[in-house]
Write a protein that binds this DNA or RNA. Structure first.
Length: 578
DNA sequence: GCCGTTTTCGGCCCGACTGTTTTCAGTCG
């Protein structure tokens, strides 16, 4: 059973416990475990085998037993018992905004409703308004909510949401009454998908800013426009919430809305132990009703400082050990965009790219790199017009000629070689010494089982003819799960043979993902962050790979793109001299 | 169910909004 499947079961248990009105702290425990398992880079199967489950954040004896059962039998008695009391189909109702576990419990107990369809029918028939705690308005909101669920637009790619958020923030900052503006939520934490945009601003006249934003802030529809809050949707239906507060609370607001929720809870618990209270308006002396003077709140640094912590970068705020690290002064010095000296994976129209070599190189040069790598597809990828031996040799020579003209900019001659079904690399033997580097990727035979897929990749790595494993897990965000691969084994081999793992920066890929980046670096494996650009516009996407690596606690030295060219050449040369 | 710089038992974050309500439960972030 995969970690994703285990996390789904734990989430299901949490939902069912909530519907059954169980102890809320028990529910919270399961939710915490969902986060922990989702963030695991290692397979839970391995942790179970080695007895390392207990002790992970939020995983005690009971939940460890549930996970062990799942790994061993593919099912758990805990879930089975709950499903005897509540039908599973009831859970789909929880996706309806404003419709939570208590209401689900009521419609099930009193009307016997078990599915979204039945809920919709009952709402249309006016049957819900007679239930306790329900009214005509609730009924109407439920119908609207079901519509949204059916439309299916609840998660957006970071690559779609972030540019929109940046535009909104820029527009806010340009307004004369706005003193400062920032984005919050999972967009600011750079999660790979986001549900909505949170925009935060400060002004001495919040009402004026809200009124202006509702009118001409760029929303297609406005659902609510108050003196401190505006919410609506963009043309494509993405939910946007703006909140505006006075300056003394801005840092607290940004901190609060940046989350994650679990990180916030940890901060508030910490505040409480220090006899302070943290809320979205500030950090105050005293606790609960006795809270007094504001200690901090104008900016985030001040809040963290008052809690005895350095500022924690938003990308790390997931309660994955960042508070402990901050406390111990061991926060990572995260990789930045400015550290990136090159992009080592891009295509020209020799294979399936848009531009000829010289134009693609010119486009990449605009990004201020000192060097880049050109990596067209290898011969076996017919659909992408992969290069056969003669065309590859021609490209290598063209790159050499180009370098002679370029002066202080260098183009490395690479290839994106297919890892064939039997694990051999699709590279003409006599041209391997002529290539500066090799990215090897899987493009076909996705359906092989995990053992075969792993054996295939291990054979490629141990051939010592490749430098980087391209988009290692093959997943597409929101579209396609990763192919089965025992990543632990792959990482071990990669360290031994000094092969880097690619972080493919396309918002559709982000492969490796954040948790895998963290595991790879912890295992001593190097990363290579690339765009895999097929045209000039995609060259701009490198920052998404950097964001993913930052979420994986990655520091610049682990990323070969940050090395000066001589160091990179030396590393690549070791394999070739061996 | 988890967890420990007062704890192996007794705590467990904080506030706003909404709708249904004459004082509050449910939902959300």
């Amino acid at each position: 059973m995969t970690n994703v499947e285990i996390a789904a079961v734990l989430a299901k248990i949490a939902d069912l416990l909530e519907i059954l009105n169980e102890n809320p702290f028990k529910v919270r425990s399961f939710r915490r475990a969902v986060e922990t398992v989702s963030g695991l880079a290692e397979e839970a199967t391995e942790l179970v085998a080695e007895g390392r489950l207990v002790g992970l954040p939020g995983i005690g004896k009971s939940i460890a037993e549930v996970i062990t059962e799942l790994v061993r039998d593919g099912r758990t008695a805990h879930l089975d018992d709950l499903l005897e009391k509540v039908p599973e189909s009831l859970l789909e109702m929880l996706r309806v905004p404003g419709f939570g576990p208590r209401k689900a419990s009521v419609v099930y107990e009193q009307l016997g409703l078990t599915t979204l369809d039945e809920l919709e029918a009952a709402a249309r028939a006016g049957q819900l308004r007679q239930l306790p705690g329900f009214g005509a308005k609730t009924e109407q909101k439920i119908l609207e909510g079901i519509e949204l669920v059916r439309a299916g637009q609840d998660r957006w790619l970071l690559g779609e949401a972030l540019p929109l958020a940046e535009e909104f923030v820029a527009r806010l900052r340009a307004h004369p009454e706005v003193l400062a503006a920032e984005m919050g939520g999972s967009t600011r934490r750079r999660r790979e998908t986001v549900g909505d945009l949170d925009l935060l601003a400060t002004s001495n006249d919040p009402a004026a800013v809200c009124a202006w934003f509702a009118r001409e802030g760029g929303l297609a529809t406005v659902e609510m426009a108050g003196d401190t809050k505006v919410s609506g949707r963009t043309e494509r239906g993405l939910q946007v919430d703006l909140r505006v507060v006075k300056p003394e609370s801005f840092g607290a607001l940004v901190n609060y809305f940046t989350g994650s929720k679990e990180h916030n809870i940890r901060l508030r618990e910490r505040a409480q132990r220090m006899e302070l209270t943290l809320n979205e308006y500030g950090l105050y002396r005293g606790i609960a009703e006795d809270k007094g003077d504001q200690v901090a709140g104008e900016n985030e640094e001040g809040i963290y400082a008052a809690l005895g912590l350095p500022l924690i970068p938003p990308e790390l705020r997931e309660d994955r050990g960042e508070i402990e690290a901050a406390e111990a002064g061991r926060l990572p010095h995260l990789l930045t965009d400015a550290d990136m000296r090159c992009d080592l994976h891009m295509h020209t129209n020799a294979s399936d790219g848009q531009l000829p070599l010289a134009e693609m190189v010119a486009a990449a040069r605009e990004y201020g790199y000192s060097h880049i790598g050109i990596t067209d597809h290898s011969a076996s990828l017919y659909v992408a017009n992969g290069l056969d031996r003669d065309r590859l040799w021609a490209e290598i020579q063209a790159i050499r000629e180009l370098n002679a003209e370029l002066g202080d900019f260098t183009v490395l001659a690479g290839i994106e070689a297919d890892i064939l079904s039997d694990g051999t690399l699709d590279i003409p033997e006599d041209l391997w010494p002529e290539l500066d580097f090799v990215i090897a990727s899987i493009h076909q035979g996705f359906s092989q089982d995990a053992d075969r897929m792993t054996a295939r990749v291990l054979k490629a790595i141990t051939s010592d003819r490749m430098d980087v494993l391209g988009h290692p897990t093959g997943r597409l965000v929101l579209e396609r799960p990763p192919y089965g691969l025992h990543l632990d084994d792959v990482l071990d081999a990669a360290r031994e043979h000094d092969v880097a793992m690619e972080v493919s920066s396309s918002p559709h890929r982000l492969d490796l993902n954040d948790a895998h980046c963290r595991l790879a670096v912890e295992r001593g494996v190097k990363l290579c962050i690339n765009t895999d650009a097929h045209g000039p516009k995609e060259l701009a996407l490198l920052r998404y790979g950097v964001m993913t690596a930052r979420r994986g606690w990655v520091e610049a030295p682990s990323v070969i793109n940050t090395w000066p060219l001589p160091k990179l050449r030396q590393w690549l040369g070791q394999r070739r001299r061996a």
